[in-house]
Amino acid sequence: MIRGLYTSALGMLATQTQSEVIGDNIANVRTPGYKEELASDRAFDTVLTDRIENGNMGPEATPIGAMGTGVSVDRGAVSNVQGALQATDRKTDLALTTPGYFVVQTPQGERYTRNGHFDRNANGMLQTPDGYAVQGTKGAIGPLSADFSVKADGTIIDNGQIIDRLRIVDIPETALTREGQSLYSSSQPAQASANPQILQGSIEASNVDLSGQMVQMMTVMKAYEANQKVIQTQDEMLGKAVNDVGKI
Rank of each mutant, 00 (worst) to 15 (best):
K35L: 00
G76S: 04
N56M: 12
E53N: 14
G58N: 14
P63M: 03
V81M: 10
I64R: 08
T31Y: 01
A43M: 11
T69I: 14
A61V: 05
R42T: 00
V29L: 06
T46G: 04
Y34T: 03
M57E: 12
D45K: 08
G58W: 15
P63Y: 01
I64L: 07
G55C: 04
V81Y: 13
G65P: 00
I64G: 03
Q82H: 00
L48I: 08
P32A: 12
R51W: 02
N80S: 10
P59L: 15
R42K: 12
S79K: 14
G65T: 14
P59N: 14
V81F: 09
R30T: 06
E37G: 06
M57I: 13
Q82M: 05
M67E: 12
I52V: 09
E37P: 08
Q82C: 01
V29F: 06
R75W: 04
V29N: 11
E53Q: 13
Y34H: 02
S40P: 01
T31Q: 02
G58E: 15
S72E: 15
R51K: 07
F44L: 13
E60R: 12
I52C: 03
V29A: 03
Q82W: 07
I52Y: 03
D74E: 10
D74A: 02
G58P: 08
D50H: 09
V29E: 13
G68Y: 06
A66E: 13
R30S: 08
T62G: 03
D74R: 06
I52K: 02
G55A: 00
T49K: 14
V29I: 07
P59Q: 12
V81R: 15
T49Y: 01
A66W: 07
T69M: 11
V78N: 07
Q82V: 02
N56E: 02
P32V: 12
V81C: 06
R42D: 01
T31D: 00
E53G: 09
D45L: 07
N56S: 15
L38H: 07
E37A: 04
G68P: 08
M57Y: 15
D45I: 06
M57G: 06
T49C: 03
T31C: 02
A66D: 10
D74M: 05
E53P: 15
S40Q: 10
R51T: 11
